[in-house]
């Protein structure tokens, strides 16, 4: 499969959508040969049309990624969705595709909620009238249920989340992902092909152990042609609540996200300090932004959210301009 190239082994893969998929000489011995040969990897046209129809109603899709886990992706996704939904005029959707470790339900205060079936598909669970949420967590019957699934089943569910959930008209679709660059990531990018993808926000912590994974994630974005909105550095420094001195718990030994962003020419959207209140608010399912409106972390989150909003508006403007130019040409020709 083409997306899989670049590893230590299979080279010269014809690509999953090629007519040679699974049949080329290079496919001999590839573990995916069976899947490719059966055409299972190629998109089914009817399905693609259903996906397209559903995704046409989404104005901006924003993927939240990180190479490493535990850096604060879900926290950021949740706060981004809440921050955007503060504008009553905007319709926001939050989709959690971390199939094995869904944490969005808890962070949004929706633990124990179940998804309902309606005539037009699954209904998201609504936090506010203008903020709907979907997660595999809503499909599990107990908090101990483990989703022990291999790739293809996870991909199937992700497709269902995009195709069968009745999101309605949505201004922003925020997608929280698991760490890494594997099935979930390839699938979501593939399925979102039909949507207006604004791009990806990449979350990291300041230390090299985390940055080395983020560089891989950035390479992944380039490879699948996913625009990068920017990088958020989380857990940068901790201010002791007693003596107000700062400690670097996760030391930026190689210059942190700032240096990496300079080197790789991507924007740094901002830095969010470690604040014990953030984790507590998440555990209780409350919005940190409204629980601690005056904290430095909140103002940093707000700035970042605003920059993402501006990025989306800007992009929208450009997209319209392109369409306008195109039409103008048509008229002139």
């Amino acid at each position: 499969m083409a997306e899989l190239a670049d590893g230590p082994r299979p080279q010269e893969c014809p690509g999953s959508s090629s007519a040679q998929a699974g049949r080329a000489a290079a496919c001999q011995g590839c573990p995916n040969q069976g899947i490719c040969a059966a055409g299972a990897a190629a998109p089914d046209p009817a399905e693609a049309a259903a996906l397209r129809a559903r995704l046409r109603a989404v104005r901006h899709a924003v993927l939240v990624l990180s190479g490493k886990g535990g850096v604060g992706k879900s926290t950021f996704s949740a706060l981004l969705a809440l921050g955007l939904a503060a504008d009553q005029a905007k319709q926001v959707a939050l989709l959690d595709i971390d199939i094995c470790g869904p944490s969005i339900p808890r962070m949004m205060g929706l633990d124990g909620e179940q998804v309902h079936q309606s005539g037009s598909g699954w209904s998201p669970v609504y936090v506010e009238e203008n903020l709907g949420v979907m997660s595999v967590g809503f499909l599990l019957s107990s908090p101990d249920d483990a989703v022990i699934w291999r790739g293809p089943k996870k991909n199937g569910l992700i497709k269902q989340f995009l195709r069968d959930v009745d999101w309605g008209e949505v201004d922003y679709l925020i997608i929280d992902t698991p760490p890494g660059t594997s099935d979930e990531h390839l699938s979501i990018v593939q399925y979102l092909g039909a949507a207006h993808v604004a791009g990806a926000v990449i979350v990291t912590t300041p230390q090299e152990v985390s940055l080395q994974d983020v560089r891989k994630e950035i390479n992944f974005c380039h490879k699948v042609k996913l625009p990068i909105i920017g990088v958020v550095e989380n857990m940068s420094g901790f201010i002791c609540p007693k003596c107000k001195n700062e400690s670097q718990i996760f030391p930026p030994t190689t210059g942190g996200a700032e240096k990496m962003c300079q080197n790789l020419n991507v924007s740094l959207l901002g830095k969010v300090p470690l604040d014990p209140q953030i984790g507590k608010s998440c555990d209780k399912g409350q919005s940190f932004l409204s629980e601690a409106p005056d904290s430095p972390a909140t103002s940093s989150y707000r700035n970042i959210i605003q920059r993402i909003q501006e990025y989306c508006d800007q992009r929208n403007f450009q997209e319209e301009k392109i369409i306008y130019e195109r039409n103008k040409n048509v008229v002139h020709v």
Binding site: L4, N32, R150, G151, T181, D183, E217, K223
Partner: peptide, 9 residues
């Protein structure tokens, strides 16, 4: 390098 692999690989 990103190892962009699906499950079987």
């Amino acid at each position: 390098d990103a190892v962009v692999w699906r499950g079987p690989k």
